[in-house]
Design a protein around this nucleic acid. Structure first.
Lengths: 224, 224
DNA sequence: GACAATATCAAACGATTGATTAACATGGGT
DNA sequence: ACCCATGTTAATCAATCGTTTGATATTGTC
């Protein structure tokens, strides 16, 4: 559940503190002295270990990506379109994907605060990527995009590339937005512990996405 | 298309420059000297006119909200549930809403750079609201939430409050995410001018939302 | 034990931050 | 002509920024 190196050497402690501090205050808002203090280290060490603040930020993102890269790869690979059973596999793979993606993003809320902060940082980076780290982000996102795109292709072979892409963006979008705007959502609802039944929310996202995608199997009338 | 006061007094010029600079660099990244320079004004004037940087930021958000508050109020009010014709009106009102919301958020891309920056700022504020300005944001968002919720109630009277709310979040989410992540989306597609046909994207969002919502009328099979 | 490489430290660097000050201009009000 | 309120300015404030420096531990090697 925690970062690879248990020994917790200074370098790792700095990165952990950086995740927390950058997530809480942003790149400009977080000072290296504050980060160092959070790691019980000297502020001069970020220059020594990471060649400066920007380097620490880059290495922080790398650590987050390395930690999260396994999620999508754990999903079953679905057979190519046309193969018998591909449609059924894609249908299941699609649901697994949403559940995994949602869990990675949202379900970590009560668990490790570092995990939580890491997701805040990643969300911020997706919305306004620091130019130096945009390639890193792209590379990390690619497997997700590929997996989802493949599922969609199998489920809606009649759509062209543009339409498929739009579907993918919408499906990812509702989940990412749910995570990003949880603060506002709780304010609007007036309930600081809003998603009380997480499973219910996940099922909603799956159902909504399948219907939105236009998969016939998902649309036996909800009103019966 | 521009801000109310044409005279462009120093105060207004400062706010305009603040919109651009805060949007580009964030609250901490933007310096009052830089903002002042963008307004051809002295940096001491932000303390004089706005009681400091935080006050300038608050007043900047107010200006943006005042400028955008009209969008939802221009939509036709739909009759209460049960009234004859309510369903048809809600169906139309729902589509108008998505179109209006999408246009406000995304369509300003080629137009006024201040409009564009204002939306960037607002998106950032929705994701991570500065504590002092959260009430402002909530008040501005309320009409949107109310309008959408009312439409959903009419279209899906069988759902409970939780389910309706989840629907609203998903629908708003895909649009907001589309706007927020346009940068990454363009990188992924490798096309810096991605939404070449904006109308097509709007129609996708309407169709996806209606199907996702589970409105029977919206689901005559897309595969014919 | 001597040596060199790696880590860590306190201290100070110059630059920049937001805020403050006092002087100065401007324009009615009397 | 005098006065006061309103803007505006350059200069300066203390504080903090990220970075650099030189000295000091720590470690492994011969």
């Amino acid at each position: 559940m925690t970062f690879p190196e248990l020994p917790h050497d200074t370098r790792s402690r700095l990165i952990e503190s950086a995740i927390l501090t950058f997530a809480a205050k942003g790149f400009d808002g977080a000072g290296i002295r504050e980060i160092a203090k959070g790691a019980n280290a000297n502020s001069a060490l970020v220059a020594y270990h990471f060649c400066g603040k920007e380097g620490l930020y880059r290495e922080t993102l790398k650590a987050i990506f390395a930690r999260k890269s396994c999620v999508v790869s754990e999903l079953a690979t679905i057979p190519p379109a046309g193969t018998p059973g591909a449609r059924q596999a894609a249908l299941q793979g699609f649901q697994d994907y949403i559940r995994a993606f949602f869990t990675e993003l949202v379900s970590c809320l009560g668990s490790d605060p570092i995990d939580e902060a890491a997701m805040v940082l990643m969300a911020r980076e997706m919305q306004a990527p620091r130019p130096a780290s945009a390639p890193l982000l792209l590379e990390h996102l690619k497997p997700y995009v590929d997996h989802l795109t493949h599922c969609l292709q199998v489920l809606r072979p009649d759509l062209d590339e543009d339409a498929l892409f739009a579907m993918g963006v919408s499906i990812q979008g509702q989940i990412i937005h749910f995570k990003n705007s949880l603060g506002i959502i709780r304010l609007i609802r007036g309930n600081p512990a809003y998603p009380e039944d997480l499973e219910k929310v996940i099922r909603h996202h799956i159902d909504f996405s399948l219907r939105g995608l236009g998969v016939p199997e998902a649309f036996p009338q909800p009103r019966h």
